[in-house]
């Protein structure tokens, strides 16, 4: 009788384990999302940009509003965008002070971080992929910033949301 009880308990435990295993979401780990070369996108009259290669399209006006507090007209002509290793999109534009780190979610891009780069903005920003970081380059001056989703990576620091340059 005791043996039967032990057997039933063991059987129940196995069934529960199998059931739990089946219901768990399938996860692929260590995915590298890094996009090797940035996308340079032109806005249309409505502020929409479309990256033909990745198929991503969105409206820039919410970001433009943060920068200029104005969405009465589309003043952002060119959008520079690159996807980092973790999957976040780094977005900026000539004249923008910030790099917007956006997390892709269901039907949306959610602000993960806003990295202030320079008061007054950069006239010729560009992103380079420098795994595991994203490099922001000012093509006009040559100054560059090492970025992570959390901020500007200083040479001897791990994380920093403050402005910095190298």
């Amino acid at each position: 009788m005791m043996r039967l009880s032990k057997f039933l308990k063991t059987l129940l435990l196995i069934c529960v384990s199998v059931f739990m295993g089946c219901s768990q979401a399938l996860v692929i780990s260590e995915v590298d999302y890094s996009q090797p070369i940035e996308s340079v996108l032109q806005t249309n009259e409505k502020g929409m940009v479309n990256d033909v290669k990745s198929g991503l399209s969105f409206n820039i006006l919410p970001l433009q509003y943060v920068e200029t507090q104005d969405t009465s007209s589309v003043t952002t002509e060119e959008v520079r965008m690159i996807r980092g290793k973790e999957g976040y999109y780094y977005i900026t534009s000539p004249g923008y002070q910030n790099v917007f780190v956006m997390a892709p979610e269901k039907g949306t891009l959610k602000l993960e971080n806003r990295i202030l780069i320079k008061e007054g903005g950069m006239s010729k920003p560009a992103f380079n992929q420098r795994n595991p970081y994203v490099q922001l380059l000012n093509r006009e001056t040559g100054e560059n910033y090492t970025l992570t989703a959390k901020g500007i990576q200083q040479p001897d620091e791990n994380n920093n949301s403050e402005k910095g340059g190298s």
């Binding site: 070369i37 992103f127 992929q129 093509r139 006009e140």
Partner: peptide, 13 residues
């Protein structure tokens, strides 16, 4: 000249 020579990966390609 140095300033002019700065190119991003995008520009290089």
């Amino acid at each position: 000249a140095m300033a002019q020579e700065v190119k991003s990966d995008y520009e290089i390609q």
